[in-house]
Simulated assay, not measured.
Amino acid sequence: MRAHLDRSGPVGITTIPGAFLLVCFIVMSFPLAAYAQGTSAASISGLVTDASGAVLPGVTVEASSPVLIEKVRSAVTDERGEYRIVELRPGTYTVAFTLGGFASFKREALELPPSFNATVNAQLRLGTIEENVTVTGASPLVDTQTVTRQTVLPKALLDAVPSAKTLLSYYALTPALQSPTNAQDVGGSKGETSSRASLHGSKQGDTKMMLDGMSFNWFEGEGSGRTFFVNALTAQEIVVDTPTGSTSAEYTSNGVVLNVIPREGGNRFSGTIFASGTNHNLQADNMSDALKNAGAITNSGTRRVYDLNAVFAGPIVADKLWFMTAHRRWGRQERVANLFHDLVLNDPFFTPADGTNGRP
């Protein structure tokens, strides 16, 4: 893109998009520590003591994971021996504790789901810096600081289930989650559509949909609809918050909250290609004599549903700049019983597809 600047007059119109793209590239070139801000971010906190139980200030705590573009995020224990590492992407982490004069301590294979606070305490014993204590078979972590109830759908499950890659089809993977009867997706027969959900008696109008903690519901009516359709194939995880009366105040409602955690690039190239489709030839016809006698000419049904989707990700600069790109073409066409297309609009007569004159 060419940028032009006329010094004798106002800035040329081509300067604005060129400068905007330049600023975006510069911003993206830096590993942002706060990239995972929002309700989907996880955290690690805890207390560090010595063998006698006395707190240890000044201990360096490092959380490392392949999901972090900067690889390692660190903190230092305060005068009470406490530390907290916030805004972490969901993934597998290794937590290391080091302090001069003490043997280092390491906790491996720490799984962090979204919106989870992991408590990892450590006890350092006196020793040389070359000594290491590694824990790999610890008991599962329990979040003692959060009272919300969640259902997490990991990418392994989303890829394995033979269903459409839409948010509506993922409703069926959440226990007790109910969608309207006119929005039931059976084997991908419905296609992409906007639908609300209810769980444990919550209002469907209180449904909230988020992309990495950012709401994309519209503000008309009850504020639960959407005109922006997230590409669900790009999801690393999908988190469904259960309305229990203890939902985060950030949601502004006590209904079902569906949070799509998007994939990111990495230091290796990867990709996913998905295609699905159907048409009316694969659908049964339930036009009975009783319906015909009642005046029905056609019945409701699916004419066609298609979804072509591709996601690619990888490094531009290793450990510094990653990319993830997704491309999708989808659509659906349905037929409503006894409803026909009018070739000539805004006139008092119905003109069917064959061009003959119909009834007024």
Rank of each mutant, 00 (worst) to 15 (best):
S288H: 00
H4W: 13
V133L: 00
T39N: 10
V133F: 01
G18C: 05
T244P: 11
I273Q: 10
G191A: 11
A249V: 08
G188Q: 04
T298N: 02
K155Q: 03
V152L: 09
V61W: 12
A103R: 10
K106R: 15
L99D: 10
F97Q: 14
G266D: 09
Q145E: 07
A172M: 02
R84T: 13
F25D: 09
S215H: 06
L99A: 09
A326H: 03
L47N: 13
G277D: 08
D185M: 06
Y35G: 01
Q333D: 07
V48C: 01
T181G: 05
P262L: 07
E222N: 11
S43M: 10
F116P: 02
R149D: 10
V95F: 05
N281S: 06
E250F: 06
T15Q: 05
Q178N: 03
N293R: 13
G201C: 00
S115P: 03
D241E: 15
T356F: 03
S288F: 04
V186F: 14
T136R: 15
V48Y: 06
S194N: 08
V11R: 14
L124H: 09
L167V: 14
N254M: 10
I297L: 15
Q283P: 00
T148E: 06
I85N: 04
E264T: 12
V305S: 00
T15G: 02
T351K: 06
L199W: 00
S115A: 00
P113N: 13
S29Y: 12
F229M: 02
G255C: 08
I273P: 03
V230N: 04
S194F: 02
V257I: 11
A36D: 08
S115C: 07
N259E: 08
P180H: 07
D206M: 10
N132F: 03
G9V: 04
S52H: 11
R335P: 00
S189C: 14
V257E: 06
T146H: 05
E334P: 02
E264D: 10
H4G: 05
A122K: 07
D342I: 06
F312V: 14
P113Y: 12
E192F: 10
E264P: 05
V72D: 11
Y306P: 06
I44Q: 07
L339Q: 13
A197L: 11
S52D: 11
G137P: 04
V95P: 08
G18R: 01
V152I: 12
I44W: 13
K320H: 13
R359L: 13
S52F: 08
K190I: 15
A172D: 05
Q236K: 14
S139K: 15
G277S: 07
A103S: 09
G213T: 02
R125H: 05
M28V: 12
P175L: 00
P243I: 07
L291P: 01
S194C: 09
V55E: 03
F102Q: 06
K320F: 09
I316V: 10
Q283Y: 00
T298R: 08
F349E: 03
A326T: 02
N299I: 14
G137W: 07
S198N: 12
A296D: 14
G266W: 00
G358R: 04
P180E: 06
A275V: 12
N286R: 03
P140D: 11
G100R: 02
S74L: 09
T302S: 11
W218D: 15
F116T: 02
N231W: 04
F97T: 15
Q178E: 03
